[in-house]
């Protein structure tokens, strides 16, 4: 199986080309794999890039479909935050990624660009522990506030149990931190 993603596609996609022309150094790398165009953006210029992607008449990415993260444990940089964009007008898609180091998992929030990023970023914070600077209300969304750790990180064991909380929890369970297996 040849690794297609490794070799840069020779005739570059016009959208990625424009992105490169516009932002130059801030675009770390680009590739297309199975028709999905992807650009890895430097952390500092994420918001500017997103604004351009949304507003430029040739892009018109008016919808932020998804924000998630990937944990490449043991690789540097460890985290990637992934944004999937879609344009209703142009009917095209793009994927934007930002790489983050383990000891500094901070990236600017894009809530100001797409208001729909609010919950999606809260989810990424909840499950991966990515901190979004400038998010209006960054708190857990699926799990409860007392939950320790971020379960979708690769170093969080699947079988780990957290103590029960709330009324009816066994005595002393809240400070126990017992874990099975």
């Amino acid at each position: 199986m040849v690794e297609e993603s490794a070799q840069p596609s020779a005739p570059e996609d016009p959208l990625l080309q424009r992105l490169r022309d516009k932002f130059g150094e801030a675009v770390v790398s680009t590739h297309s794999y199975r028709g999905d165009r992807t650009a890895i953006i430097d952390r500092g210029s994420l918001v500017a890039t997103c604004e351009w992607l949304r507003d430029d008449p040739q892009n018109q990415f008016d919808m932020l479909m998804d924000v998630t993260a990937v944990d490449y444990l043991g690789r540097r940089p460890r985290f990637e935050v992934v944004y999937h964009l879609y344009s209703i007008e142009k009917n095209h898609r793009a994927r934007i990624k930002v790489a983050l180091e383990e000891d500094d998992v901070k990236v600017a929030s894009v809530v100001s660009v797409w208001s729909g990023a609010n919950w999606l970023e809260r989810e990424a914070w909840d499950l991966y522990g990515i901190q979004f600077d400038g998010h209006p209300e960054l708190k857990r969304i699926y799990l409860y506030e007392e939950f320790e750790g971020h379960p979708l990180r690769k170093d969080y064991p699947k079988e780990k149990r957290q103590p029960l909380i709330g009324p009816g929890a066994p005595e002393g369970a809240a400070d126990g931190g017992e874990s099975s297996s």
Partner: peptide, 23 residues
């Protein structure tokens, strides 16, 4: 065993775009 890569595929679900992102 798939090759190394990542894909996003969306379909029209009952409530809207249902997408799967696989790495």
């Amino acid at each position: 065993r798939p090759p190394v890569g990542e894909v996003y595929q969306a379909v029209e679900g009952g409530n809207g775009e249902l997408g799967f992102y696989l790495v």
